[in-house]
Design a protein around this nucleic acid. Structure first.
Lengths: 111, 111
DNA sequence: ACCGTATATGCCTTGACACGTACATGCCCT
DNA sequence: AGGGCATGTACGTGTCAAGGCATATACGGT
């Protein structure tokens, strides 16, 4: 029904999240993923299948290896769903920021 | 493991997403949610329990009624997780935009 | 052609979760 | 105090998806 629900279901899986985090650093073959994640190869392949169906990754065959790479545009839908909520909490943050502007430098330790 | 995985699991549920969307318009009592969503009351209460545990909503008792309201800051964690990916796809969009700036209006008058 | 490597798929079991029904709790009104 | 309304909770059930194992497919080297 909600389109973003499917996407969220795909992301609601620790292993798949870790796969995306790994791919964030750059493309990766299945074997490397298996090693890095400590997950069995069939499980990894199935998760990759799900990520592929969600258009979050794409494959580039290189001999027997299959190199997976990120498709970050797929996450734009999630960003769009998040937008109205972000306006809300940023509104509160803006109020905080205005307060900080009025009382400068009360602890600059946050990155 | 990943902290955001819990949050995503909470959101990976159409009914819970719809509840958040309703609360986006403003606070709401359980009975109204039951009516609006067409879900049984126990189911609604259970989903609200999950959303409460995830600190995405908070309750304000008003006599027998319990009015639920949004807590959008809880979604900031999801936004933070999304940030590095957003940089990627926005990078591509920026590149496209730069291209469009260099070659203004490539085919606006055609299709 | 054969073998080893790399990846995908099929079947089965198990565990988690959402739903429905019934019940418990809490609050207001008379 | 009692009855009705609004909401939370316990239990049993069905469904769905993740994991493990075995196997199938694809490719390269010899």
């Amino acid at each position: 029904m909600t389109p973003s629900h499917r996407l969220l279901a795909v992301l609601a899986e620790p292993t798949r999240l870790r796969i995306l985090d790994v791919l964030l650093a750059g493309p990766c073959a299945v074997g490397e993923l298996v090693e890095l994640l400590g997950v069995t190869q069939p499980a990894t392949s199935k998760h990759l299948r799900v990520l592929r169906a969600a258009r979050l990754v794409h494959v580039h065959p290189d001999a027997q290896r299959r190199v997976y790479a990120l498709r970050p545009e797929g996450l734009a839908e999630l960003d769009a769903w998040l937008a109205p909520y972000r306006r809300l909490w940023e509104g509160r943050l803006d109020a905080l920021e205005a307060h900080l502007d009025a009382n400068p430098d009360p602890g600059r330790s946050l990155s």
